[in-house]
Design a protein around this nucleic acid. Structure first.
Length: 476
DNA sequence: ATGTCC
């Protein structure tokens, strides 16, 4: 990206003032090196987002931003329903409510090492993974509706997971105002056999060691101890969310002219929040959020079953579960007052600061855990929300390392087998049904996650709490 | 992300 087009606000914040139909500025939060490495498309896309009706304050790109469908991945934008604001299927993303959860294990790396190969094999065997993977569960239409309405709470009621998990899930495990009636028959059909499955692409389950603590007080508050292991699960709403995204993107693109919306890019298809189409999308999208929350709760349950075979204490309490592809109604400061806004976070994590009443009491003093998935070789971070993030980016932060190159480019650079062997030499066991998928996800295909989170911290979006190094990776 | 083109 040509950085000379941007106004430098600080070492890690860059602004494009409104032009060419932009209704608000575009702001990129990242150190100069990361901004320079970003594709020009990121700036073009975030500027286009700032052209949409009812956009509030500014459109933002997080430090891990990269080119996406319409909106960049790592994009945040909020819209005001009373100002003609819109909701956009492309602004949420195809994998609705894709997200991350981390379970504590209380186990030491030595305990994992003693069973590492067998544990990796058991996790890989017990948790369905890969494109088109099916689980043991079969949902009839009535159960599908209950799941789409109940989220992780539905899963717990059916015996998958524990009541106490719900307090450690965003929105207490359930998106309210979901409308399962707006989820098509085909979307339901695609999901019938896919509950409790990990999926493919960048989705994974990892056993990780906490190797660095940056903020001892917050780490203790989260239950993270140096030299202990955690399990992190990254997945979303599988075929159902994808189908909802596909259907509504198409309908929004077709309907835009009639709804009086001039799209700067067809991929930015959207509908007024106060329209029938907008309301229907929100009802379906919230159902997909519940699908993802239920899916991760079931996978957490399956993980506990495997750990119970190997260890006496297989409780695996949930530290936190947070989505990074969502649209949520939140109250934020705008123009000297506060407004209810529809905050789109696509490849961006909600990051409430300390004291926020929407956080569970046990976490409120520390700020919200922000779970950052790095690549399978380089490791992951746990961050904490900070109060400055509200004015900087509607209480949002990055979500991962961000791709450095396309999947296709990665397969030209690496072979899957070679990546697996290289990681094994570093003590990391990778299990995957797809060697091509592993090549696409090679550590070198991602940006330096450390540089990304340093930028997030410098930008006042979140602060570093802990660094996690993978030991076992089950990869889709 | 995705039974990578219902």
């Amino acid at each position: 990206m040509d950085i000379s087009r941007l106004e430098k606000l600080s070492e890690s914040a860059w602004r494009l003032s409104p032009r060419d139909g932009m209704r608000a500025p575009a702001i990129i939060y990242a150190a100069e090196t990361l901004v320079s490495e970003m594709d020009d498309k990121v700036l073009e896309q975030i500027a286009n987002v700032a052209k949409l009706p009812g956009v509030a304050r500014a459109a933002y790109a997080m430090p891990d931003a990269h080119w996406g469908y319409g909106f960049p991945i790592g994009g945040v934008a909020a819209f005001d329903a009373d100002e003609g604001g819109v909701v956009s299927a492309g602004g949420v993303g195809f994998d609705v409510s894709c997200g991350v959860r981390t379970h504590l294990t209380g186990l030491t790396p030595d305990q994992i090492h003693a069973v590492q190969d067998d544990l990796a094999a058991a996790l890989y065997e017990h948790i369905p993974v890969g494109l088109g993977a099916e689980g043991e569960l079969r949902l009839d239409d009535q159960e599908m509706t209950a799941m789409l309405s109940g989220g992780a709470r539905w899963a717990v009621e059916r015996g998958f997971g524990r009541e106490e998990d719900l307090l450690r899930i965003e929105e207490r495990g359930r998106a309210v105002d979901a409308d399962p009636a707006e989820v098509s028959e085909f979307a339901r059909k695609r999901q019938r056999r896919e509950m409790g499955t990990l999926g493919s692409g960048n989705h994974y389950l990892e056993v990780q060691e906490v190797v660095d603590i940056f903020d001892p007080v917050v780490a203790e508050g989260y239950g993270l101890k140096r030299g202990e292991c955690v399990v992190t699960i990254h997945c979303g709403s599988r075929g159902l969310g994808h189908q909802i995204g596909t259907e509504f993107l198409r309908e929004m693109a077709v309907s835009a002219p009639a709804l009086g919306i001039a799209l700067p890019d067809r991929e930015l298809a959207c509908a007024p929040i106060k329209s029938d189409l907008g309301r229907r999308y929100l009802g379906a999208m919230r159902s997909a959020i519940n699908c993802a929350l239920a899916n991760r709760e079931i996978i957490g349950h399956l993980t506990r079953q495997v750990f119970a075979r190997f260890f006496q204490h297989g409780e695996l309490p949930l530290m936190f579960d947070v989505s990074h592809n969502t649209c949520k109604v939140e109250r934020h400061a705008v123009d000297g007052g506060t407004r209810d806004l529809y905050v789109h976070r696509k490849g961006a994590t909600r990051a409430f600061g300390p004291g926020d009443e929407r956080l569970p009491e046990s976490l409120r003093a520390f700020g919200q855990p922000v779970l950052i998935g790095g690549s399978m070789g380089t490791g992951s971070f746990v961050l904490a929300g900070v109060t400055t993030s509200e004015e900087r980016a509607f209480s949002s932060a990055c979500h991962g390392a961000g791709r450095r190159m396309s999947r296709h480019a990665a397969t030209r650079m690496w072979g899957g087998r070679q990546v697996v062997d290289d990681l094994r030499a570093q003590g990391i066991i990778v299990k995957s049904p797809s060697m091509r998928g592993v090549a696409e996800e090679a550590p070198g295909a991602y940006k330096d996650v450390g540089a990304v989170v340093d930028s997030a911290e410098a930008s006042g979006l979140a602060k570093k709490v802990a660094f996690l190094r993978p030991m076992i990776c089950v990869k889709g």
